[in-house]
Design a protein around this nucleic acid. Structure first.
Lengths: 178, 178
DNA sequence: ATCCCATGTGTACGAGTGTACATAACGGCG
DNA sequence: CGCCGTTATGTACACTCGTACACATGGGAT
């Protein structure tokens, strides 16, 4: 139960992993780079996370939780009178504006599930959580479609260096809502 | 002009790179792994492609071209009387059915643009080409939205191990088309 | 024929990696 | 107190990687 010296050691390593992925990408993630960033010896990272996959799962899960909090905190999903499409489009704009390190980090971890089955349950959780949030305003089918469309729009912006067009996003999101 | 010994050497290397990414993912792509797969010496791959980015650009571009051909060959985008949403949903189902190696390969290269600016122009090209194809049946805004939604749906299937639901895809794609 | 240079090849080096493992420190328990 | 197992650490090994570079080869221009 009681961890001896540093009960936050494990948590610090996860935080460091998130910073490393944010700065250097998944390709730059290694036991050593995380150890250096967390300022712990190499053996410590390999002890807490035998596999890099384990570490990525923990990091992705933590990123998801932070994300969910942001969504919930913003509200707007509560009041049924607000324009849902506009709300979502505005929120994406906010997310994509400014420093994109966080956005890229979350998407990179999320997309890594394509090749790493260990991450798939967590990715699934993320999509499901977001759809659940949206389900308070629409039916489940529409919610899922909205998540898919938002993913697609974000990706097009991130992958092609195109500018985010909030009016366009609002328009097409609105079409999906019956 | 005339390449001396092996004019197809460069092409063979690209083909080998595509096979490597398909089997081991981008993480398994290296000058050496490609050289082994193409059955050429190490120096040959580094000569033709100084950087791995260069090689990925060539591979992604080639994958795109093959993809565009498949789309064009299937037709159905010509006849304005066919149900566009159903056509697209059916085509996605066909693409996602069976061996997904090809699908995963194309998406992995496509998504790699997130962290590799060198790939972004090619990713952009891909999205634009597909939207152009669709523009023969709808307006450009709708075409772009359809591409985004299709991307999102495919990703959800690939990332979360969820089964592809063609009826759902047809339904929501239909909503986007005005 | 001769020279030049694009093309092709082999090898070596230093850096970085995952992993294993022997050892140390310390908390809880008998 | 003394033992034991969890937690923590340092080091070493074998491996892969990108890169550089010296060298071979032969086609085309002169």
């Amino acid at each position: 139960m009681a961890r001896r010296y540093d009960p936050e050691r494990r948590q610090r390593i996860i935080d460091a992993a998130i910073r490393v992925v944010g700065q250097k990408g998944i390709a730059g993630l290694s036991h050593r780079s995380v150890a250096a960033e967390a300022d712990v010896p190499l053996g410590s990272t390999t002890y807490h996370f035998t596999t890099l996959d384990e570490l990525m799962v923990a990091a992705l899960r933590q990123a998801n939780e932070g994300f969910a909090k942001v969504i919930a905190a913003r509200g707007g999903l509560e009041d049924p009178h607000t324009d849902l499409a506009g709300e979502l489009a505005g929120w994406m704009g906010e997310w994509l504006a400014g420093d994109r390190t966080g956005v890229e980090l979350e998407y990179e971890l999320y997309l890594a599930a394509l090749r790493r089955p260990a991450l798939r349950p967590v990715a699934d959780e993320w999509a499901r959580d977001l759809a659940d949030q949206l389900s308070r305003r629409t039916d489940p089918v529409t919610a899922r479609a909205l998540v898919a469309l938002m993913d697609g729009i974000c990706l097009q912006v991130l992958l092609t260096d195109a500018a985010y067009d909030e009016g366009y996003a609002r328009e097409v999101l609105g079409r999906v809502i019956p």
